[in-house]
Amino acid sequence: MQEIIQYLFSGITTGAIYAVIAVGLSMLYSSTELINFAHGEFVMVGAMAMVTFWVHLAWPLPLAILAAMALGCTLGLLFERFAIRTAKASNPIVLVIITVGASIFLRGTGMLAWGKDPFSVPSFSSHESIEILGAALLPQSIWIVLGAIGLAGGIHFFLKKTLTGKAMVACAVNQKAAWLSGIPSERMAVLAFAISTGCGAIAGIFIAPITMSSYDMGTILGLKGFCAAMIGGLGSLWGAFAGGILLGVLESLGAGLISSGLKDAIAFILLLLILYIRPGGLFAAKEAKRF
């Protein structure tokens, strides 16, 4: 029992991080129909930026977090401007390959900037861990879960309540109609990129204190975020969030109760199951198109 609660705690913590990654991917997909295979690399950038700003340069925590986020957003904007927008391709496969190229490029740059060794980052606060039903709850976990909920809530508020956000949703639903009604769909795509890669960086900031960070940490995290987004339904904000939490919990339970070696397989088994049973995702309103 105590064990299971412990697994649940750690599952929800990693799940919240997957959720943030998935929300970023899902946001971008719903407004540009692009699946960004470089997304995981922005997580890496966020985590490594924390290493530099907070650990090495010893900036105050809030400033370090802001700077890491800003770095993620900026890189995302540069990527959008110089790679995606310049591309003359009409074939979506080509755009996907460009994001793959970007992911390799960013990983290479990360290796050059931070070297091959993994780093660790201390917890955001140095409080003792809290004991609940005999299981230890780390304060960092609380930070992460609260942060993830806050972020998703903020994006929800932005999309539903602000004019810009509503315009963005309109673009996602029907680009041509949005264009006809005067919404600058191109600027919306830029914004979606910045928010999406910003989410990636935030996930990196969250994860840095609970794992070792290195230049090659991004790929697997990006893929898992992708699984989470698919599980919840690609293009749905809370679907992606729930998919992330579900994935984190199942992974942690699976690793603890079955075999830790197969931990990484759980995400992909879930992905296949979803594709077989409910291709639109667990929480999607729409069925996957057939024709």
Binding site: G101, A102, I104, F105, L106, R107, G108, T109, L112
Partner: peptide, 11 residues
């Protein structure tokens, strides 16, 4: 620089 160049060429 291998990865950087490879990624760049691809893009």
């Amino acid at each position: 620089y291998e990865m950087i160049v490879f990624g760049l060429v691809l893009m």
